[in-house]
């Protein structure tokens, strides 16, 4: 590895660690990509009843987060849902 590369790239050891951390979160949660996709679609369906969202910009993932109980980190579902427009009245239109 040249000096130039060192500033440019992460070391492969760090890459491995980051990849593993992400991989293990979903391994431990026992959540397949199919299930994640289903959750995502359901979230879109529910939120769309109340407001207009940017479905293409929606991002959900399972991450580790510190638990409030103080017993270490626990998996958490993180969702970033960009809102385009709040619907009038903010009530479901049945």
């Amino acid at each position: 590895m040249s000096l130039f590369d060192m500033f440019k790239k992460k070391s492969s050891g760090d890459v491995a660690k980051d990849r593993l951390k992400l991989l293990l979160v979903s391994d431990r949660a026992n959540c397949s990509p199919d299930i994640m996709e289903a959750i995502k679609n359901d979230i879109i369906a529910v939120i769309s009843k109340y407001m207009e969202i940017d479905a293409s910009g929606l991002d959900i993932q399972i991450t580790q987060t510190e638990s409030d109980g103080g017993n270490g980190s626990v998996p958490a579902l993180y969702a970033n849902i960009p809102i385009k427009d709040m619907k009038n009245g903010q009530k479901p239109n049945h």
Partner: peptide, 19 residues
């Protein structure tokens, strides 16, 4: 030697991941 170069996860990294 590889850990020092950053090309292998260190013992601490592995322990950190597996806890």
């Amino acid at each position: 030697d590889m850990v020092k170069k950053g090309d292998m996860m260190s013992i601490d990294d592995v322990v950190d991941i597996l806890s």
